[in-house]
Design a protein around this nucleic acid. Structure first.
Lengths: 209, 209
DNA sequence: AAATATATTGACCGCTTTGGTCAATATAGA
DNA sequence: TCTATATTGACCAAAGCGGTCAATATATTT
């Protein structure tokens, strides 16, 4: 277990987690370098292998951690009582930005995990957990009230537009944050843009109630 | 120069170019492996270094090639006579998809170039050429007729929505193509989606003419 | 203050991969 | 058949890899 690791200060844990997420998400399991991780996290090589028995167990720890972080953020942000499609997609955007704020590379890491091929790790567990995440996303799109859309266009086209525009906004935010040094004003800007996009989409796609 | 290289059959050149673009875009200059490139391109190590004197000159050749491909595609697809904002953004989407079809990793490669840090290559030339590409993009958004938009919302919000939705569509297409083996039906699907998105946006954002 | 226990370090190990070379071979044209 | 060119892959020194461990720095106990 990562027992030694859990005794560390939260700040140090976060430093190590973020450094490792960055390296693994950038290069994948095989090409990720533990030397790079310790350099970025500002700890010694010996320490890393004191906290985690080897590279593989570090990877598995990160995977577990990421799934848990993601799911807990997910359940706290997405409100299933609200059946409005726009609100749901908006909350998915908020989810993404909040996650990036805490762990800039957690999203990319989870994405990279699903693309890992060479890994000799028990893929059963991985596959299973990926299913959990997928189910979460499906719930995001399920049990929605679509009666408030106007009727002079195809509903599917409207849903598509909403999905693509929030996805595009999310990707642009992610790219800009990746480049920048500090986050806060960028995040503000994108939250504001999301608000305005939400309002505009509601105005042009929903019936005037 | 890459004189030896230009004597090769077009098919072989393309194989090498695409293999190298893939490796460099995936791993960046330092971590890209010439061994991987020759394996993917199905040529011998000796051949690669017969065509290009070293790794750096291969990289520079690719950079030049990519800029040229991009700009020529750009000028052939984007029609500056058409002042319609939606049509311009739509043509940028078409540009992107066409490029991906020919060279699946050229876009990512050019993006990666702008993020290269460790490279000891004369960055003056690079910076300058990046400016050329940036100027191209600026022209995409310049001298547009915005008089056909409705007036019951902020113009900037509408432009934002259009930009984000086409960007989102482009990213989704790129991701899906990256995963898939064959392209054609995927491309068809996304061209169709782009058409429908264009129509819907025109309907809800433009005045009825 | 001394003694003990714990946390952290980085030089070091055997091994793999790196960019690049070059004598040997395969192919093509005369 | 002979010559010229294109292509190969075993080979090299150097660098980087995951992981170890004796030595040191820090915290805790007496």
């Amino acid at each position: 277990m990562a027992d030694q690791f859990s005794k560390l200060s939260v700040e140090k844990q976060k430093r190590i987690i973020n450094a490792a997420l960055k390296e693994f998400s950038l290069k994948g399991y095989r090409d990720a370098s533990t030397n790079e991780i310790v350099k970025e996290a500002n700890i010694s090589k010996g320490s890393l292998f004191h906290y985690f028995v080897d590279k593989k167990s570090l990877y598995m720890y990160l995977y577990d951690y990421s799934i848990n972080e993601f799911m807990s953020e997910f359940t706290s942000v997405v409100n299933y009582e609200d059946k409005d499609y726009l609100n749901r997609l908006y909350s998915a955007f908020v989810l993404k930005i909040n996650m990036i704020k805490k762990h800039p590379d957690l999203f990319d890491f989870l994405l990279k995990v699903t693309q890992e091929s060479d890994i000799e790790i028990s893929t059963d567990i991985l596959d299973n957990n990926i299913k959990v995440v997928k189910k979460g996303f499906e719930m995001l799109y399920s049990d929605l009230d679509k009666s408030m859309f106007k009727e002079d266009f195809e509903l599917s086209d409207a849903l598509n537009l909403i999905e693509k525009s929030f996805y595009g906004l999310g990707m642009m935010a992610q790219n800009e944050i990746r480049m920048a040094v500090t986050n806060d004003d960028i995040l503000d800007k994108y939250f504001k843009q999301a608000d305005e996009m939400l309002k505009l989409l509601r105005k042009v796609l929903y019936k005037n109630q």
